[in-house]
């Protein structure tokens, strides 16, 4: 449901807020987020517990997915920064090198809300770490799905203007410092969807995402596996994508 679209920040910047986003929680994506890379050997007790937790999530409305985004024209690309309309600048060598053809930049923030992580804390606090761990993994899978849905929305919108949407990039990866999180939060009214930043730049609620997506007539879209391969955790990350089909052994 598109709740709101209007001029809210800076110089007549259009911001769109979307709620009631349908999240696709596939079991294999949940297992990937649980750090399980060989689906066939998972204990049935663990599968049953994940199913039970999913039912509880529905019954207790623990997921409240929402996202907000704004689109800024790109006014210049330097070797380590991207300049946007409204005198906004992102200091990120990765963006400058990866988005040479971007004519616009979509700034996106989104969250599944605080409910799920509060429940995770409760489980951990009362000595039920397995439930806590599994629920946390479901929350991460939910954020992944939210990210995908948000990207799809932006891609659809861009295509109406004859643009393509490129790959997404989030602060904290090599070449896109987490300190730029503050700038992203100035460019989109994250507080209107219940998001804020801790002093460290960490998003609150933690089960949230921030990202930028380049838009233009010729944009490069990388597979998720390629993005993981560029990360400095590519060999050790429990949640990495190998390729679209190989991330979990059958």
């Amino acid at each position: 449901m598109r709740e709101y679209s209007g001029n809210r920040i800076g110089e007549e910047k259009d911001v769109t807020i979307v709620r009631d986003i349908h999240l696709n929680l596939e079991q294999r994506q949940i297992l990937r987020r649980e750090g399980i890379r060989r689906q066939s050997s998972v204990r049935p007790e663990i599968i049953a517990l994940i199913d039970e937790l999913l039912l509880n999530i529905d019954a207790e409305h623990l997921l409240e997915p929402v996202c907000a985004y704004a689109i800024y024209p790109v006014s210049g690309i330097d070797h380590d920064q991207l300049s946007l309309s409204g005198d906004m600048v992102l200091h990120a060598p990765l963006l400058a090198s990866a988005l040479p053809d971007a004519e616009e930049l979509a700034i996106v923030v989104g969250t599944i809300g605080p409910g799920l992580e509060k429940r995770v804390t409760e489980y951990l606090g009362k000595g039920e770490p397995l439930r806590g761990l599994l629920l946390d993994g479901i929350g991460s899978a939910a954020v992944d799905s939210l990210s995908q849905q948000a990207c799809q929305l932006i891609q659809n919108e861009a295509s109406l203007r004859g643009y393509q949407a490129g790959s997404r990039f989030s602060p904290g990866i090599t070449g896109f410092p987490i300190t730029e999180q503050w700038q992203l939060f100035r460019m989109v009214p994250a507080d209107e969807i219940g998001m804020s930043l801790a002093a460290s730049g960490l998003m609150v609620p933690r089960k949230s995402v921030s990202m930028v997506i380049g838009l233009g007539q010729k944009m490069v879209v990388r597979e998720r596996g390629e993005a993981c391969a560029r990360c400095n955790l590519s060999k050790t990350c429990l949640y990495r994508w190998e390729t679209d089909n190989q991330h979990i052994e059958a």
């Binding site: 649980e34 007790e45 770490p129």
Partner: peptide, 17 residues
């Protein structure tokens, strides 16, 4: 050796508890 993953490790610890 990668036969078990983190949830299984935690599961075993809960059994021990």
């Amino acid at each position: 050796d990668g036969t078990y993953f983190l949830p299984e490790l935690i599961f075993s610890a809960e059994i021990l508890k």
